[in-house]
Nucleic acid binder design. Structure first.
Lengths: 251, 251
DNA sequence: CAAGAAATGTTGGAAAAATAACATTTCTTG
DNA sequence: CAAGAAATGTTATTTTTCCAACATTTCTTG
């Protein structure tokens, strides 16, 4: 890549910063070069932008929209997650206020909310909020704060309190690690407070985790298995022997 | 459109709810029909989804909406807004904490923040937050609450207080109406509180409005012209005669 | 300023996507 | 269940996008 090429790329990236696409022809005109040069610029760049049917788009940085793509196997567990979310959606009732955790596990759940009546979704995740914001008939409450890139979510001091002020029927919680003895954990410590607050005040607590999480321990512990009413998973989990443990739903 | 077709469309829409795209071939496989049928489904539908270079996308996904488009003229003021934002960006200094208002006027400003050091952006708008979230070197604080579709922004009781707890150097405020006598106004009442709070505590207050807003009055009044230190516009605005009025910057 | 290198433009053909036309299957309905 | 209609599949054609090859221009550097 050369200096002028970098300038052009920066200019285009600027134009795309607010989202959206630019036609190749317009990009060329905007930069005062031929279309071929724009193509070459983009091809030689770091992949921040890509062409999609003659239009220039910001590449799917995971910060925005995860691409559903089976053959490209970007997310090998997508189909599993979808199945899990279908099971999870069965628990939802009309008029519910749902807490939906961050991560990609619960994203397919959003699609299943379309058409349901009188739902409210509470979340602290940007990707979840974006998905819900497109559903005109679902109310969205986003718990704000400082943005954390790694988990596409927000954290703040007041979040715990904010959650307690809401009446949450069902909390759908995701996790990076689920261990029979060592409990449920995630990667990022700022997720602990909102997760715990949601678990503390929701009428029903549902843990959703695909098999890759089962038997795994991650740095930030946030709950024991018994803190959940339902565990939805496609992994190996022995049904609780004694009463009092969560109900295990296989997907 | 027929029943099964509607089912397929719903299924695809579900898959796209989390954002992203589906290849035509995958969509066909997902629905168990040929690619041609999917094409026909989408063509006969209400336009909620569109094809973009062999991929299916939600039409309202701002990530894939055409931004700069001469023939499609979706936003005739795009170039003007870009110019305004270039002027606005001149005021930004290293280490600043910026309040950025909702709407589309200030969106091009985000692109101009890339590469600047030590910036923090405070906003209550989802589209602004999405744009900022892609900039790895800019800190983002999103003020959450209940989502309002019309302005793609959030509103909550505690927002005023939350803003007052932040140290804001510069507030970039947009408006739907700017009137010499009747002051500055917007469409939605929930925007009034955050705008006023930002104006109240920012060290520098900048109003950014293209010519279509000048001389216009909208339902929700939120400030007088004298509450601003700088007004950046490409419209007709007489420079303040007496001292004390805002500095007018033409773009 | 000449020679070489790098960048950009132009052109033509390969690949992919969009569309049209027609064949086949599936669904109604009497 | 036969006839017609609707839906879907298949194939061919057109259009568009993509890419490689070569031509031209612009930039370096001695």
């Amino acid at each position: 890549m050369n200096g002028r090429s970098a300038m052009r790329l920066a200019r285009l990236q600027e134009a795309l910063a607010g989202g959206g696409t630019i036609r190749l022809s317009e990009a060329a005109r905007l930069c005062g070069v031929s279309e071929m040069t724009i193509r070459r610029d983009v091809a030689a760049s770091d992949g921040a932008m890509v062409f999609l049917g003659g239009r220039l788009v910001m590449a799917d940085n995971p910060h925005y929209a995860p691409v559903y793509s089976v053959d490209e196997q970007k997310d090998s567990h997508f189909l599993a997650k979808r199945r899990l979310c279908e099971r999870a959606a069965d628990f939802i009732e009309e008029g519910d206020t749902l807490f939906i955790d961050c991560g990609t596990t619960l994203l397919p759940l959003i699609g299943l909310l379309a058409g349901r009546k009188q739902l409210t979704v509470v979340t602290y995740a940007l990707n979840v909020a974006n998905a819900v914001s497109t559903l005109s008939d679902v109310r969205l409450v986003l718990l704000g704060g400082v943005y954390h890139d790694a988990s596409q979510s927000f954290g703040s001091d007041g979040m715990e309190e904010a959650i307690h002020r809401l009446g949450i029927n069902r909390a759908f919680i995701s996790a990076a690690g689920v261990h029979e003895q060592k409990g449920v954990s995630c990667f990022h410590f700022h997720e602990v407070a909102p997760k715990q607050a949601a678990i503390a005040c929701a009428a029903q607590r549902l843990l959703v985790a695909d098999e890759s999480k089962i038997g795994v321990i991650r740095p930030a512990y946030f709950a024991g298995l018994n803190d959940f009413d339902v565990v939805i998973t496609d992994g190996d989990m022995a049904p609780s022997p004694e009463s009092g443990g969560p109900r295990i739903v296989a997907a």
